[in-house]
């Protein structure tokens, strides 16, 4: 999908849907300002599915929230960077414009299906509300649309289930309702934050099919946040790997699996039992993610890295070109030869 241009700090080009450049987000903590996103850059093209992977706490959700301007403030603040949606800078646009974009041009599927639906309103109302807001549709059209999208995500008897309350839905059904809500205005970009974690394997592949067909039919770009490299391999065109609030590697999906260029990616791949297995979880890299208020100097992965040298911790490492269409953030990029997935 990607045609491969060098990163430019300016506005987007025709096929470029979203470009995040050098995004910095801090959170106020009892230890002072903690840097949670330390200059994240990534881009997504129309109709492209980009996987965003990384351990818990690496800043995936915060990246997604930033795009919609939803980082809670306080305690959060955006301290730098730009987010271009085509040629509009979302960090600069006025609040009313942002509210037109949310749910309509960009929508987000949240990680927590159990608590992300409002318990006091019917599922149908919560979907149709979005449609009515952005399409100036009538109540009736709204409900009609809700039935359509619920049907699309595989809720049986959608016509009666629209009138159900969230507590009458199982976890998996709620997740699907959230997805339906995100789809209802045919957005140009969907940020899907672990949308399939609560679902069993059959439903999961239904949802993945659905996302693929959204992309194929209306050219929706998707930022797919997940822990599951199996799903990434199956679904995504390109992968962005995050560690400690930074992008450490980005590459087309096959290249990344074949030949990782960052030690952390290598670790992720080796922790994955088998390519294509959907149950694989990132787990077994020794050590744990640094707390945002106690980031190591230099390379943030340094303390856990098997290839660590003293020079790695001297100064921050830049994200550098690592071949066609790919980049990595490693001080020893040129010398290391890393193992891909078998």
């Amino acid at each position: 999908m990607r045609t491969g241009q060098p990163n430019q700090p300016t506005g987007g080009t025709a096929s470029e849907l979203l470009r995040i450049s050098e995004l910095r987000v801090d959170f106020a903590t009892e230890h002072g300002w903690a840097n949670v996103l330390g200059g994240v850059s990534l881009d997504i093209h129309d109709g492209e599915i980009v996987g965003l992977v990384g351990e818990s706490g690496s800043g995936k959700t915060v990246t997604g929230l930033s795009i919609l301007g939803l980082v809670p403030s306080p305690p959060g603040r955006t301290s730098g960077g730009h987010i271009w949606l085509h040629d509009e800078d979302l960090t600069e646009v006025a609040e009313p414009r942002l509210r037109q974009i949310r749910g309509n041009e960009i929508s987000m599927i949240f990680q927590e299906p159990m608590t992300s639906l409002n318990p006091a309103f019917t599922v149908g109302d919560q979907i149709s509300e979005t449609f009515r807001r952005h399409r100036r549709a009538s109540r009736k059209q709204g409900t009609q649309r809700a039935v359509e999208v619920l049907d699309l995500v595989g809720i049986p008897n959608a016509a009666t289930r629209v009138h159900a309350y969230p507590h009458e839905f199982s976890g998996g059904m709620r997740q699907r309702a959230m997805i339906a809500m995100a789809l209802c205005c045919d957005p140009r970009l969907i940020i899907a934050d672990e949308p399939t974690t609560a679902l069993d394997v059959t439903v999961q592949s239904q949802i993945l099919d659905l996302l693929r067909s959204m992309r194929a039919e209306i050219g929706t770009g998707i930022l797919f946040i997940t822990h599951d490299l199996g799903v990434v391999a199956e679904l995504c065109d390109r992968v962005v790997v995050m560690y400690g609030g930074e992008v450490v590697e980005t590459a087309p999906v096959h290249d990344l699996f074949q030949l990782p260029r960052h030690p952390y990616t290598e670790g992720l791949l080796s922790a994955m039992p088998q390519l294509g297995s959907r149950t694989a979880k990132l787990a077994s890299i020794p050590g744990h993610t640094p707390e945002p208020w106690a980031m190591p100097n230099g390379c943030r992965f340094g303390p856990r890295c098997t290839y660590h040298q003293e020079s790695c911790s001297e100064s921050p490492v830049a994200l550098e070109s690592a071949g066609t269409e790919r980049q990595a953030r490693c001080a020893r990029l040129a010398e290391l030869n890393l193992r891909g997935a078998s």
């Binding site: 939803l70 037109q100 749910g103 608590t115 992300s116 919560q126 509300e129 979005t130 959230m178």
Partner: peptide, 11 residues
């Protein structure tokens, strides 16, 4: 979370 969802819908 559901308030965040409502915000994310652009209401």
């Amino acid at each position: 979370d559901y308030v965040r969802t409502a915000e994310a819908k652009g209401l």
